[in-house]
């Protein structure tokens, strides 16, 4: 696990939302938190290398670029978890895939240009695995705004 000092935490809490879209954004951030631009960049390079920052960039809205997404649940026998997870991961349309043991144990999300593509993927997975895939498409979105309160 990465150890963060108070300045790291300040930077990380500062740049998740409202990153300055200006000529010298790291200078703006530096002024906001009271350290030098060089230090902001050095710290971010380290945080990026260590994995605390995956990227600084856009979170793309799948719906506005055209497309649809869904959550799929499947009950996989324990001995077949890796095999089935592997089949699921083969699709570039699969964005998240987790083991969450319950009545259904593999849960994954699919984003695709249209519903037909999602149906095709599910049909293919069913024939490859012989398992039943439960489709839970989004009916209403209340929140999607991942911002972590780093403490």
């Amino acid at each position: 696990m990465i150890d963060l000092d108070e300045t790291d935490k300040l930077i990380l809490n500062h740049i998740q939302l409202d990153f300055p879209l200006v000529t010298h954004p790291f200078q703006t951030i530096a002024e906001d938190i009271g350290i030098s631009e060089e230090e902001v960049i050095e710290r971010l390079e380290r945080l990026h290398d260590e994995g605390a920052v995956r990227k600084i960039g856009p979170i793309i809205n799948r719906r506005s670029v055209g497309g649809t997404s869904t959550l799929i649940a499947v009950d996989v026998p324990v001995t077949r978890i890796d095999e089935v997870a592997g089949y699921i991961n083969e699709y570039s349309e699969v964005s998240h895939n987790y083991l969450r043991p319950d009545k259904y144990n593999i849960w994954f999300t699919v984003s695709a240009p249209n519903k037909e593509r999602i149906c095709t993927i599910l049909d293919e997975l069913k024939s490859k695995t012989g398992l039943e895939f439960i489709n839970l498409p989004t009916k209403r979105l209340f929140k999607i705004g991942v911002r972590f309160n780093i403490r």
Binding site: M1, I2, L4, L12, I15, Q16, L17, D18, F19, L21, E50, G51, A52, V53, R54, K55, I56, G57, P58, I59, I60, N61, S64, V65, I144, G145, V146, F148, I150
Partner: peptide, 15 residues
């Protein structure tokens, strides 16, 4: 709204 948010994506597990 094409860009939902512009900023850092955090490797939350890593921290």
């Amino acid at each position: 709204g094409i860009i939902r948010r512009f900023g850092a994506s955090i490797g939350h597990r890593d921290i």
